[in-house]
Design a protein around this nucleic acid. Structure first.
Lengths: 250, 250
DNA sequence: CTTAAAAAAATATACGATATATAATCTGTT
DNA sequence: AACAGATTATATATCGTATATTTTTTTAAG
């Protein structure tokens, strides 16, 4: 249950804490660094200490640190060149739609602008997607959506099962658009949304039951009328936006 | 100009080729592997050889190979666990909107489905974005867009300058939406589009001049009337789609 | 004094050997 | 047959060292 032994190194002498998961140290380091980056602790332009010093500052080997930085590089958060060092990129270089980047931003306390942008993007993409899904879904997908609807009827969004069904429905809907990229985009977003609602219902279990009004809208989306599905989705997103805002103003 | 010297290793004895860029071997390896993944040479479920063997198969050190796999992992293309090895994920796990993944897919010969999905996504996002940009752009952005328009008037899409102005205009437009995520999404797409048109105009320099009709549409988009901008963008995307299709059928 | 070339320094990048952790598989016992 | 322990294959992690690249500084020429 302890962190990886480092041969020839007395355990935990340098780094402050960093207990985390054992067999995936690089992942933990990457997440830790990424958090500070999206958080603004390391603003764009910030230069990290030289590899050697930085590694012993964090109490990990250089290899691990390098692998962690590879992840951040892959997501556009940092870039590095010899002599110049490794530095934080400007926000315009970040892969803001990467699922990890999205969830890191939410974990670090989503700003108002972030939420506004996110829901605006939803409003651009998802009504149209709902329309396409209504036109293209097949029998099996219709059946699966009906099942998810049933689950949502039985549980509320405050329960894990209810939330799972919610996510499942979304996933089915995007799958029914038969567009891989739309699916990828919407999955990124809904993962982020799921974290948001998880925070919402986890931190404070909301007193009111959010399901009844939602359920009717979901049913309209599943029905098969493109125009109706579009309108229902718009209403649904508006509700979700309002919900999230009051939740974060708690 | 030669590849990194490997101390105590006679140069280039194992790996077939892999000359590539010198100080960024891991990047080259990642790209090489990614190409085979998106290409389908390594289909979802494919298990890579054990780290040690794989490394000497490619003629690189294990560290480099590990860093390369970190990049692919960060982009959702592969995942790895002890004993089970490193394997290719299902497509639904891939970050299809990652700029690199997009460009890799195009490099590996974009399939019909890919192009269809991509232009469908454009059609969902960009008309709406054009509308938002028309409402929100400020004076400086208007000026910059006018400049880009001038450049486009002077050059054609077949010239590098013309293409640069084209990309610049797109970027300005998305910046004017004042939505970071919309910007990120559209930049990913337009990077991919740029590669496509680069292929198109690089492989065969198209005989006809594509600019005149495009230019009028760009002007309408820049004008400031939301509804007009939306309609012009729709027409523009339709033109681009048709263009790309005939180009790839050459 | 300015400019260009050369040297130096700082830093990322790369290699190899070795040790540990993890999870699947095999094996023996109940 | 089912469960517990040993085995094994694999990823993960560390250390020491060597090379490449680029920025900075120095030096020399004009």
């Amino acid at each position: 249950m302890m962190a990886n032994k480092r041969p020839g190194m007395e355990s935990g002498e340098a780094g402050e804490a960093l207990p985390l998961l054992s067999g995936r140290l690089h992942h933990a380091v990457a997440q830790r660094l990424a958090t500070h980056v999206v958080n603004g602790d390391y603003p764009p332009g910030h230069v990290f200490p030289a590899e050697v010093e930085h590694a012993e500052l964090l109490g990990v080997s250089r290899s691990v640190l390098r692998e962690a930085f590879r992840m951040l590089t892959a997501k556009g958060l940092v870039s590095s060149r010899p002599k110049a060092g490794t530095r934080v990129n400007e926000r315009r270089k970040w892969n803001l739609l990467d699922p990890d980047v999205l969830s890191w931003q939410i974990q670090c306390g989503a700003s108002d602008e972030f939420l506004r942008d996110l829901f605006e993007l939803r409003m651009v993409v998802e009504p149209q997607a709902a329309e396409m899904a209504a036109l293209r879904r097949d029998e099996r997908q219709l059946l699966d959506m009906a099942n998810a609807l049933d689950s949502m009827e039985r549980y509320t969004l405050t329960s894990p099962k209810g939330r799972a069904a919610d996510i499942r429905f979304h996933e089915l809907l995007m799958e029914a658009t038969r567009n891989e990229m739309l699916l990828a985009l919407s999955n990124s977003i809904s993962t982020a949304i799921a974290s948001t609602t998880a925070i919402k219902h986890g931190m404070q279990d909301s007193p009111r039951d959010p399901m009844p009004e939602h359920h009717a809208l979901y049913a309209q989306i599943a029905e098969g009328n493109p125009a109706k599905a579009r309108k229902a989705m718009i209403t649904l997103i508006e509700l979700a936006h309002a919900d999230t805002q009051v939740a974060l103003r708690r």
